[in-house]
Computed example of a mutant assay.
Amino acid sequence: MDLIKINLDSVTDKEVIKELGSLMKKKNYVKQSYIDAVLHREESLPTGLNIGDTCVAIPHTDPIHVNMPAIAVGCLKNPVKFRSMIDPERKLDVRVVFLLAVKDPKKQVELLTKLMDLFKNVEILKEIETADKTESIAQIMDKAIS
């Protein structure tokens, strides 16, 4: 629950990544290099996804910047523009960000598959987007990725 932020009041994608990455850094989930590595990767390989009723982003970087696996979730007070994974020229109004710290590259595909399954369930995604308690989001995430 200490990696979940509700009503995150960031204005840019970089601010969101820095804010969520700082939560991970404070708990020593990631190395000092992690935030800059995520920002650099996002420039060349954007992670915004249009899920239909809402848009999400799943920024991440290479395992060498990670100490322990973790996911930080940010529910944004106002949508923030992230470039689309599918069409990098297009900017999406993202409402929920899942910042990933993956230690084992083999598990990254498995985690992304579980997140995509979560994204397919519009009702659950809306629950995350509109949650007013971090506990609610933590419970949903535990079920989704366990």
Rank of each mutant, 00 (worst) to 15 (best):
M1T: 14
D2H: 12
D2S: 13
L3R: 09
I6Y: 00
N7E: 09
L8K: 05
L8R: 13
L8S: 06
S10V: 01
V11P: 01
T12H: 10
T12K: 08
D13V: 00
E15W: 00
E15A: 09
V16T: 11
I17T: 04
L20D: 06
L20C: 05
L20R: 06
S22F: 04
K25A: 04
K26T: 06
K27W: 00
N28F: 02
Y29Q: 11
K31D: 03
K31Q: 13
K31W: 01
K31T: 10
Q32S: 12
Q32P: 00
S33D: 14
Y34G: 03
I35W: 02
D36K: 02
V38G: 00
V38W: 00
V38K: 01
E43T: 10
S44T: 14
L45Q: 05
P46A: 04
N50H: 15
I51C: 13
D53G: 15
T54C: 06
C55Q: 10
V56D: 12
V56S: 08
A57I: 10
I58A: 07
I58D: 08
I58V: 14
I64C: 02
H65W: 02
V66Y: 08
N67C: 04
N67F: 01
N67M: 03
P69I: 01
A70C: 09
I71V: 15
I71Y: 09
V73D: 06
G74A: 10
L76I: 14
K77Y: 11
N78A: 14
K81D: 14
F82C: 04
R83V: 03
S84M: 08
S84H: 09
S84E: 11
M85Q: 06
M85R: 01
I86W: 01
I86E: 15
D87S: 08
E89P: 01
D93V: 05
V94Y: 06
R95V: 07
V97P: 06
F98A: 01
L100N: 08
D104R: 05
P105S: 12
K106Y: 03
K106D: 07
K106N: 05
K107I: 00
Q108G: 00
L111W: 12
L111S: 08
L112V: 02
L112N: 07
K114V: 07
L115K: 14
M116T: 15
K120V: 03
K120A: 11
N121G: 03
I124G: 00
L125V: 15
K126P: 00
T130G: 04
T130C: 08
A131C: 07
K133D: 15
K133G: 07
K133T: 14
T134K: 15
E135H: 04
E135A: 07
E135S: 15
S136Y: 04
I137N: 14
Q139A: 09
Q139I: 05
I140T: 11
D142K: 15
D142I: 03
D142T: 08
K143H: 12
A144E: 08
I145D: 02
S146M: 12
S146V: 09
